[in-house]
Each structure stands twice: as C-alpha cells, then as structure tokens.
Amino acid sequence: MTGLRLAPARRARLPALLPALLVAALLATAAAQDRPLDPRVFDIGRELRCPTCVAESVGESNAAIAREMRALIQEQLDAGADRREVLGFFQERYGDWILLNPPMRGMNLLVWLLPVAGAVVGLLVLARLLQRWRRAAEIPVDVDSAELDRVRTEMQDQLGDGAVR
C-alpha cells in the first residue's frame, strides 16, 4: 500500500482546502437536486432500463440509481449531447441490456422478427383451416338411404307430419 502515499507538501495543504471543498460539493449537489429536469430527460429515460429495478425504466423509477441516471442525462443534454449520444453513453457501459428497444442486430433480431413470423404463421394456419372448412362444406354428404329414412321417421314422430318433407 505504501506506493500510494501522497507527497508531504500535498498532504499539508489538504486540511486548509477541506472546508472549501466540502462547501463547494454541498452547493453543487443542492443545485443539481433542486433544478427541475428537462422533459427530454424523461423521454430518454423511458428508453433505458433501470439497472436495479424489475420492469421499470429510468424515466419512471424512483430508485436512487435511476435518479442519478436522470441527473446524468440532464448534464449530458446541457453539454449539447443528443438523444442518440446519451443512449450510446449508457449502452457503452451496460451493453445492449440497458436499452428497452434493443438494436436490430444479432440475437436481438429475434425479438423483432419472432412476433412478425408468429403472426404470419398464424394467418397461414387460419387461411388453411378456413379453406379446408369451406371445401368440406361443399362436398355432398353421402348418406345411406335407410339411415335417411330412419331419421325422417324419427323427426316425423317428434315434430308431426308436416314438419319434415
């Protein structure tokens, strides 16, 4: 651990600087917390997954990390970054996982393509079934004449003579 010790001159100046540093840090923190956030912060936040939450975005979550991330987004917007650059900043650190709209490449393509493929397959199956049902309805049913007579007799018995022709 000895390799990280500070030079004596630098250490001597530190006690004098500490109160000023503390006040500056407190003021900066208070200013950052009091300031209302740009609506764009929430728009961008809604595209980012909150790292410590379940099924919540940075834009919606009240978790401490989400609040810090929103403050960071505000700082980046203030510095002139656009939406794509802000999303890229978080993507570089967390990977594609952080994006609630995963980019259309690699395995992520499945997320986009599977629902479309599912819908297409579903429509094809439905079309095939409808075709089969229609064809089945068109084919005349070959009924045995003895069986037809039996049904006719039973219906006459139940409904009366005029009901069945």
């Binding site: 923190t29 790292p51 401490a64 403050a71 960071l72 650190r93």
Partner: peptide, 20 residues
C-alpha cells in the same frame, strides 16, 4: 484494512455498468 471510498452520486457505479 484496504482503502474504501465513497461514490455518493453513484457516478462510478454507472461508469462501471453496475446492476446492483
């Protein structure tokens, strides 16, 4: 015994892509 530091605004945790 090893040094411990304070990441009060979680900026370092974000820089490291921390999930928790």
């Amino acid at each position: 015994g090893f040094p411990n530091v304070i990441d009060d605004d979680s900026r370092v945790s974000i820089a490291y892509g921390l999930f928790g």
